[in-house]
């Protein structure tokens, strides 16, 4: 996506909520190529509220990924492996 000129953009979007839903479907990788093309090329670059929403959605996803994933304690992983191996032996 290129950098649109804010002064030429709409400051209000009558379909803001529907657009947000579409935006999420696109970011979830569930939109058709046509939906994607139409929304990203025709709408996003001329609509300020949706443009902002896009960046917000992306930022939240990044934050979730960096802050909300914890690895399993190694002890627990070893424990599970041992239990299954014992199970196999029995």
């Amino acid at each position: 996506m290129s950098n649109p000129d804010p002064s030429k953009m709409k400051q209000d979007c009558p379909e803001k909520n529907e657009c947000l839903k579409m935006l999420q479907v696109i970011l979830d990788g569930e939109a058709t190529p046509e939906q994607k093309e139409h929304f990203l090329k025709n709408h996003l670059e001329e609509c300020m509220p949706c443009y902002k929403n896009y960046h917000l959605e992306v930022a939240i996803r990044q934050l979730l990924k960096t802050k909300c994933c914890q690895d399993a304690p190694q002890e627990l992983v070893d424990d599970i492996k041992t239990k299954v191996i014992n199970n196999l032996a029995s």
Binding site: C68, C69, Q70, D71, A72, P73, L76, V77, I80, K81
Partner: peptide, 13 residues
């Protein structure tokens, strides 16, 4: 086993 970290995170959350 390769999914154990994701699974732990899910269990914890």
């Amino acid at each position: 086993m390769p999914h154990i970290n994701s699974m732990y995170n899910f269990a914890y959350r």
